[in-house]
């Protein structure tokens, strides 16, 4: 065998993104042990990617955009926020109360280092879109092979 396989995160021949799912599950398990509602599982995230960046989307309706806290460190991305319960005055009562309220925190690890300065976030119609570009140094580069002159 000429190439090393099965070693390291990218060496297994699997998509580097496969690791994301595993990491997420692990992290959720860790976090959910300490908080209720299980903070690792809420909010649900979808991750979209190209070779150069990832876009993380999450549904957090009714949150003030200013209060959403996003932190990036290395390859991990964390979003935090909270939503208060609907205030109830005297003579008012709930018939149904299904909507979540409280604090949430979600951390996901991407298979690459994030260029922290270029992270962009947008909140529209209750959905948060975060663009996480891959660190410049890690982007795939094309190497030109020079032909030797005869």
């Amino acid at each position: 065998m000429l190439w090393t396989t099965g070693l390291g995160r990218f060496g297994s021949g699997l998509s580097p993104w496969a690791e994301l799912e595993r990491m997420e599950n692990e992290m959720n398990r860790m976090l959910s042990r300490y908080t209720y509602p299980p903070s690792g599982e809420f909010p649900a995230v979808n991750v979209w990617g190209t070779a150069e960046q990832a876009v993380v989307t999450t549904e957090i309706p009714g949150i003030d955009a200013q209060s959403i806290e996003i932190t990036v460190a290395g390859a991990t991305f964390t979003v935090r926020g909270s939503r208060g319960p609907e205030p109830v005055q005297e003579n008012e009562s709930y018939h149904r109360r299904e909507r979540w309220h409280g604090n949430f925190s979600k951390t996901i690890e991407l298979p690459f280092t994030i260029e922290a300065d270029k992270v962009e976030a947008r909140f529209s119609k209750g959905i948060l879109y975060v663009t996480l570009p891959r660190a410049e140094a890690e982007k795939p580069k094309k190497v030109l092979v020079k032909a030797e002159k005869e």
Binding site: W17, L20, E21, E24, A44, V45, N46, V47, W48, G49, T50, A54, V55, T58, E59
Partner: peptide, 10 residues
């Protein structure tokens, strides 16, 4: 656009 859905939890 031009992104691939990698992980979907909702």
């Amino acid at each position: 656009e031009k992104h691939e859905l990698i992980h979907a939890s909702y």
